[in-house]
Amino acid sequence: MSASLLSARGISFRYGGREVLSEVDLSVREGELAVLLGPNGAGKSTLLKLLSGLLHPQSGEVFLQGRPPASYGRREMARLLSVVGQDPPIDFPMTVEEFVGLGRFPHHGFFGGWTPEDRAQTERSLEMTALSALKRRGLGEISSGERQRAMVARAICQGAKVMLLDEPTAFLDLYHRVAFYEVVERLKEGCGIGALVASHDLSLCAEYGERIVLLSGGKVMASGRPEEVLTPENIRRAYGVTVACDRNPATGSVRVTPLKGQ
C-alpha cells in the first residue's frame, strides 16, 4: 500500500452551533483517485475546505505529508496541494492562458520571473484540458464548461502532489466528463498524484475511483472500494432513493440505476 499524502483523523466542524461534520476520518494516498459522495448539504465542500486549510476543525487533525496545514507557508503548501472549487466570476478582462498561468504563482512568487518551465507547464495543462485552441479567448467569451476546465487546468499547472476537486465536472458534457477522469488517470500514473473528487456522478465514480467515501449528515456512512460502498442499502440511506446495483457487463464495475416510481 502506498503512502498517505493527505489524511484527516476524527475531524469535527461546527458553523455557529450547527454541527456540519463529526468525527470524519479520510485519507488520500499516492497514485489514488478517491471520490467523495454524498447528498447536498452532507458536508462535502466543508470537508474539502478543512483539508485545504481554508477552515480549521474544532477537533481532530489534518495532516498533509505528515504535517498540519497551518505549519506550512502559503506557497509551500500550494506547491503540495491544489484545489478546484467554485470560483466567483471575474469582472476584468483576462485570457484563458493568463488565468491558467496564475497556477504557477507558488513556484515563482511575487518577484521571480517566468521560467521556460512555467511556460511549459502552462502549455501542458492547456493541452491536457483541450483548451489550447481557446487560450487567447477572454474568460467572459467561453462557456461555463470551458471555464470549469480552465480551473482544472490552473490546478494542474500548480503542479501539486494532491488535488482536491469540488464537483469539477458539474458543467461538463459527457465527452469532457470522461476526458476529465482520463486526465486524472494520466496524472496519477505519470506523476503519482493523489486526487480527492467530490461528485454526484455515481457511475463515473464507480468506473474511475479506487475508493469511495460516502458522506451523509456530516458523518462517514461508508468507505471502501466502489462495490463495497455503492450498495442499494447505502444509497437508500444516504440519498433516500431506491436503486438497483449490478455490474456493468462491458467493464465489470458497479452500475447504479435509479428505479422508477419507488
Binding site: G53, L54, I90, F105
Partner: peptide
C-alpha cells in the same frame, strides 16, 4: 508594482487566491 503577481491573484477571489499560495 512589487506586489503585481499578488494583485493578479486577488482577482481570482479569496479562496482560490489562498489555495494558489497567496497569504
Amino acid at each position: 508594482f512589487l506586489l503585481s503577481r499578488g494583485l493578479d491573484l486577488l482577482l481570482l477571489g479569496d479562496e482560490p487566491a489562498f489555495t494558489t499560495g497567496l497569504p
